[in-house]
Write a protein that binds this DNA or RNA. Structure first.
Lengths: 345, 345
DNA sequence: CGCGAGCGCGGAAACGTTTTCCGGATGACG
DNA sequence: CGTCATCCGGAAAACGTTTCCGCGCTCGCG
């Protein structure tokens, strides 16, 4: 518990403003919040006092008295993951537009910390929580109104991309280019969102008569493994895949980060993208437009997710309607330069 | 101002805990904070009451009374920029270790919003602020104890990487590989940190008898321009550079994002990296290890910057020592696969 | 002219803590 | 046995707001 210096000059309070303006504190409060009638002349005097004293409301006091903080907590696994960072950006922007403050916390991919974060947010009196769990197995739950994001919980209100549809979009795109020999690289065998992408992908293939064998789906080490270990593992998978008897003509990586790392390995091995092999990612992080080759991917609409999540939270808080169910946001295929028809044999 | 439902069941307060435990509120407070002697038997009774009621301290009330929030504000331009996101991650982690809460705000690269953010943080009673300004020209300043980060302000306590040294490290590396024809790609002509990198680079070259002409330093459009516009501009610069009479054998991009976009353009144009041209970035964002080719770059030590900044802030808050000056964090060269000796003519 | 309505404002009670001050009990020691 | 220090706990005052209640005044209307 660090030592903190008491502020040198005490800050102006609503009381000092009232004294300077020659009115009662209640009147100042009404002027600040527009919560009651105040004559224009009085309002002007109050405003002058505020400006002169440099008064700023004390949100702790307001929150204490009004039992309302106008702030919501956002818990997510890790800002170093570009997708989460960009999601945080979108959410913060949307909340700001609504006049709400964001309290951003990182769980560091550690489910054990999530409980503590929820307690912290409760102690800080947030009105609600937007919660991206560290893993699908994480079971932390607070007493606050919560909307789950990206990683839904059955029976709880949540907002996520339609991952199955996303996977299907990829399948459709690759099939229409003429690909028939396909493979999937996923980072973690257990992640539900990733699993849905693969399921949607496989189902769409099957509907068009193309079979995706189990051995065509390669998974990296479980979530939580060190990044460089996962990269090495991924590199091995790529090599194994491309050196097999019937190498795929297209690869679906279940996230852009994996896709970018896959592209690196393919290029290192001397394969050309998309000439020798097509590559599709997922998320559409900003970086995916800048790498070589610019990545064909599935865009998760972060702004829409943010809007949807905040709407759901407000509905939950207003409490007059039935709590919203699990909402799906439509993903969109973004075609760039990493996909093309397969080379004719 | 959104409507917020009053909480259904009122939360347990320190008063209710005291009643259940059969003690006075002051005693509960002492037990919670260890701020006074309390007998073990009493402490046990209190703890049982706390557990039974599911009590959580109300930080608004504590902050109001104790005039101390144990939280610090962090203002940065944009989480969608991977370097800032990773910096935020490091800072949040370091603050958490110190038992401090982080209030993260984005200015969206907009200097006009910074003033409002500072007011917000003041209203929320943060103990201090870590401030990454949106631009070197942004002049916003609050009344809170502030440590400037990454973009220093003359005469104010600040923490930043030693950008000149970083630039010199790049020069040294490229010179020792045998490069003599060099070029620089920077994103923004006016940014001081970027300027220092270029200055350090040019100065180190000059010391070794290599001249960097003005026309060898290409700058993108000013900060704030839309991302895709900047990418197009950058592409043009790369092309122009490589099609010139004496194309460089090595390029220094003043950030990893620019380097990655440069690599893309070079590869699109058919150049091999590092065979045809070497490429060096700056920052060492995580992605730079995953792209092709893995990027030689200068690592900004985010953890050290976070430690340094928090240390400076605590010193500023304790107030007994002279406020710390402008601190520089040492950057380190990270050699990967994007640099090699120049092709012999 | 009388009366009710409503506007503008003041007063005061909360909100949940921390902190200070004080008193009672207990133990040690002469 | 008396005195004093020590330990533990109670009481109450703040912290800066919001909100409720009520009062005086003005104005419109019959």
């Amino acid at each position: 518990m660090p030592i903190v210096r008491a502020r040198a000059r005490p800050r102006a309070t609503i009381t000092s403003v009232a004294r300077v303006a020659g009115v009662a504190v209640g009147t100042v409060s009404k002027h600040l919040n527009g919560s009651g009638p105040v004559a224009v002349a009085t309002a002007r005097r109050i405003q002058q006092a505020i400006d002169r004293l440099g008064y700023r409301v004390n949100l702790s006091a307001r929150c204490l008295r009004a039992r309302r903080s106008d702030s919501v907590g956002l818990i997510l696994p890790n800002l170093a993951n570009p997708f989460f960072a960009e999601l945080a950006h979108a959410i913060q922007q949307a909340l700001t537009e609504r006049g709400l403050q964001t309290l951003l916390c990182e769980s560091d991919e550690n489910p054990d910390r999530e409980g503590r974060l929820l307690e912290d947010l409760e102690a800080r009196q947030v009105d609600g929580v937007l919660f991206v769990r560290a893993s699908d197995r994480s079971t932390a739950a607070g007493r606050l109104p919560t909307i789950y994001l990206d990683r839904p919980v059955a029976g709880r209100p949540s907002v996520a991309s339609d991952n199955k549809l996303g996977g299907a979009l990829v399948a459709q795109h690759l099939l229409s280019l003429g690909h028939r020999r396909l493979a999937v690289l996923r980072e973690d065998r257990t992640a539900v969102s990733t699993g849905d992408r693969v399921k949607g992908f496989a189902a769409a293939l099957r509907r068009r008569g193309v079979n995706l064998r189990d051995e065509d789906v390669l998974a990296g080490p479980p979530c939580g493994t060190a990044a460089h270990v996962r990269a090495v593992e991924l590199g091995r998978h790529v090599q194994e895949l491309m050196r097999s008897k019937a190498p795929p003509t297209a690869i679906f990586a279940t996230s852009d980060v994996v896709a970018i790392a896959t592209a690196r390995r393919l290029l290192e091995l001397g394969f050309k993208i998309p000439d020798d092999v097509s590559l599709v990612g997922f998320d559409d992080i900003e970086m995916s437009a800048y790498v070589f080759p610019p990545l064909t991917t599935v865009r998760q609409d972060r702004a829409a997710m943010a809007r949807e999540a905040i709407g759901a939270l407000e509905q939950l808080l207003s409490g007059d309607e039935a709590p919203p169910a699990e909402a799906l946001v439509e993903p969109k295929l973004v075609v760039r330069a990493s996909t093309a028809p397969p080379r004719m044999p």
